[in-house]
Design a protein around this nucleic acid. Structure first.
Lengths: 157, 157
DNA sequence: GGCAATTCCGAGCATTTCACTCGGTATTCT
DNA sequence: AGAATACCGAGTGAAATGCTCGGAATTGCC
């Protein structure tokens, strides 16, 4: 399609999207011990084999714990109030950095144009803005918004 | 590389990066009439042929005007204070929408999971946060920060 | 012990996007 | 006339995306 018709800026990939759904689902079943990926995939209508891959990243990031064998499954590694959307996005899509020179933490990696890097400011501002927004949302808050399963019907909004 | 090692979230492509540099450059030479792409490419050390493609998007978005022939070039279509980083990003990378269901303007496109779309809230919040940040930065502000060329040396920050 | 349900692991693969390049045409200035 | 420029569309190699598949290890239950 060439560079003619760009589609969307700041699009999050299915890794982030599915992963977020997965984590919210786990949060909603936080009290029930482990939940199998099969159950999550069915409830959320997501490809199970693909979820396996995503949950591996989440596990390596210390956000979930897996239990093998029959009756096994996954559960959040800590309380839903202690996990943020930022944690999840970083685990699945990498650090939040609009540009390489605006990496989180140590920012002075390699700004090619030192002299008048006006654009650097744009991406840095953006990075901190996005990070702040995502880090301010906890899984507990997200899980509470509206619950389709288990709870039969919560009061609207 | 498979899905094993994701690189970076919310990364802006070279379209956005180069395009921003291009526009800041045009803003800095706002008083000089048209500026050729060749000059911009040289100053900013960017591939000229590629810039041609990007500037086409900017022109279609009404952000720059081109003048053909010898001595021609491009200039901003309006005052640098009337063009925002948001305008530029949208022209080059498309609308700001973390997810398709969070498109700018009319948001009710197609949320697959109507019942308990908790994640929708995440992306919507993100979209408006990003848009607000980018729409709050004008080219005039960016061009003023530090000028490498023309002006010999501006007072710091 | 055997079997089924799981997590865990790594490879592979089709499609799309990215980051460009190239060749050509139209226009304008000198 | 000739040079400098914008304008246009196609093409291309490399990477990322969005999955699937096969198998090994572990655990619970009969």
């Amino acid at each position: 399609m060439l560079g003619i018709a760009p589609q969307a800026a700041f699009h999050v990939s299915t890794r982030g999207e599915y992963g977020m759904r997965l984590m919210v689902d786990l949060a909603r079943h936080w009290s029930e011990g482990t939940v199998s990926l099969h159950a999550v995939a069915t409830r959320e209508d997501l490809p199970e084999a693909y979820l396996e891959q995503l949950v591996a990243s989440l596990r390596k990031a210390g956000l979930v714990r897996g239990k093998r064998g029959a009756g096994g499954g996954y559960m959040l590694a800590r309380d839903p109030s202690q996990i943020t959307a930022g944690d999840i996005v970083r685990a699945l899509e990498g650090p939040i950095e609009p540009q390489i020179c605006t990496a989180e933490g140590d920012a002075i990696v390699n700004c090619v144009l030192q002299p008048g890097c006006a654009t650097h400011h744009v991406w840095m501002t953006l990075q901190s803005t996005i990070a702040k927004a995502l880090d301010g949302m906890t899984l507990a808050q997200l899980a509470a918004s509206d619950a389709p399963s288990t709870t039969k019907e919560t009061a609207r909004a």
